[in-house]
Nucleic acid binder design. Structure first.
Lengths: 172, 172
DNA sequence: TCCTGACTAGTCAATCTTGACTAGTCAGGA
DNA sequence: TCCTGACTAGTCAAGATTGACTAGTCAGGA
């Protein structure tokens, strides 16, 4: 339901059409969520069926008409509900990268170390890029900081993992 | 592809049937991944089509026959490939819980604080439960530790967020 | 003027995921 | 013996997600 919350929250600020929503999310919110174009349209259609938003055609110049979405009263109520749920419940995170570690003993420890070093480089670059990002206004600042803290934590953990495999590589 | 890696990795250890795989994942690997029953069967069918695994019927007593899966040579190669990719590339994490924070200014700061306190309680309980888990053997130990470190980091971050909203609540 | 490449706006088919269901087996009590 | 509830094994249809595609607009150069 996070994506529905996101769309409602953006539409609540100002009416938009689908493409505009998608662009905004890909450009400005890429750090905290992903929302492909067809998914955005799918969700907008679903929310229209549920009566959370209403759409109307709009025509600008001689460009083809666009569907502009507007949050209804029911949608506003839903937004409040979704927002409270989102804030009060932690979203459980699963680390796909841990699955490889479960099977790491299929490889020589030296190989595992080499592969994890690669992972480390990408992670460190991601952290550096996030830290270098310009200080954003208000609410997005929290998201950026969250990301930085998370990536720092990941790097620290990864280093302990690498250290362990390095140790076992020397005794093989 | 993480789920394919997981299934291949488990089947490589010993042949299993679908239900058995699902049970094992739900019971022992719930901390690091989720894999619903129909998804497991879907992926097993797909991997069979791709030639990564082969299935054969097996009958025990007068129970209904079961399909037992076995990793083929092509599947073994694929496993190595997927494992190396998984280890060398960090899996980018998205925090659905951050979406609510983007719109937190729609609520009174005092309300946000109350909601985040709830989130904190659940998170702390999760951490306590994970720390209390019995020390697992070898590779799963890494996953548990990862989870603990992550949850500690999340709690620390959440506390700074709560502090900020508490501060702004007092000036409203 | 005409062409090219970029931008806008959205659709489609294929794939993936899941809640709810079916259907057989078995152990233990009434 | 018969019934109930739990376990085993898997299916189905509905819903969600995405890569690849379509089709119109527009600016700028040849």
């Amino acid at each position: 339901m996070d994506r529905e919350l996101l769309l409602l929250g953006l539409l609540r600020r100002s009416d938009m059409h689908g493409y505009q929503l998608h662009e905004f999310i890909e450009r400005d919110l890429a750090t905290c969520t992903e929302l492909k174009k067809p998914t955005a349209y799918f969700l907008l259609d679903k929310m229209t069926r549920l009566g959370w938003i209403v759409q109307h055609e709009e025509r600008e110049g001689n460009r083809p008409p666009r569907r502009v979405y507007h949050v209804s009263a029911a949608g506003e109520a839903q937004f409040q509900q979704l927002l409270r749920t989102n804030l009060s419940q932690p979203s459980s995170t699963r680390f796909g990268g841990d699955i490889g570690l479960i099977f790491a003993n299929s490889l020589a420890s030296a190989d595992v170390v080499a592969l994890l070093e690669q992972r480390r480089v990408v992670l460190a670059a991601d952290l550096a890029a996030t830290q270098a990002a310009p200080a954003h206004a208000g609410s997005l600042q929290l998201v950026i900081e969250h990301r930085i803290i998370h990536l720092e934590s990941e790097l620290g953990w990864l280093d302990t993992v690498i250290a362990r495999f390095t140790a076992s590589a020397s005794t093989e």
